[in-house]
């Protein structure tokens, strides 16, 4: 079974991610591309086990009204160096108030875990085969690369100087 990092732990994952060109929605927990969801939203609305994934150039605003009915929203990173998904995640969490599972899919690597979780991802799914089970467990260490980041983000909205009393220099 596929593995997933959810809230800082390696767990089994039973969601199926449909490819961008999928036209049929199978039974079972499934994450569909935005276009498919938009064309079949009416039929899919009542399913409790439905998620939608966004490509980097797809606007999270498209999902704003549907968010309460979605069990998962995933954001695709076709290349890990394509940073648009960080902004998409931040928008979903802040502007659109999404509280459900937000999953990073595609080229998801441990050296980006810290930034991804800061931007609101609670589920990280490296491509199948990228890491061995052992490496995946080891990768959890990267979630804690920095203990007190400077700036506010989704995980800690306040900057460090609001979270803590910082030392004043003696006059």
């Amino acid at each position: 079974m596929a593995k997933l990092i959810k809230n800082g732990k390696v767990v089994d994952d039973n969601w199926q991610v449909l490819p961008a060109d999928a036209t049929e929605v199978p039974a079972g927990p499934v994450i569909v591309p935005l276009a498919l969801w938009q064309s079949a939203a009416g039929e899919l609305a009542d399913r409790g086990d439905l998620g939608v994934w966004l490509a980097p150039d797809e606007d999270p605003a498209e999902l704003a009204d549907a968010l309460p009915s979605l069990a998962v929203v995933a954001i695709e990173f076709p290349k890990f160096a394509d940073g648009r998904g960080y902004s998409s995640a931040a928008l979903l969490r802040s502007r659109y108030g999404y509280r459900g599972e937000l999953r990073a899919i595609g080229e998801v690597l441990r050296d980006q875990f810290f930034y991804l979780t800061r931007c609101g991802f609670d589920a990280l799914q490296p491509a199948e085969g990228r890491y061995t089970d052992e490496q995946l467990v080891a990768s959890l260490a990267s979630l804690g690369d920095f203990s007190e980041p400077y700036q506010g983000a989704i995980d800690r909205p306040e900057p460090v100087w609001r979270r803590h009393q910082r030392q004043q220099v003696a006059a």
Binding site: F80, G83, Y86, S87, Q112, R118, Y150, Q151, A153
Partner: peptide, 13 residues
């Protein structure tokens, strides 16, 4: 300090 390890802007165009 704000820009250092800003999580949203580490992979800009």
């Amino acid at each position: 300090q704000w820009a250092t390890f800003h999580p949203e802007f580490a992979y800009l165009p």
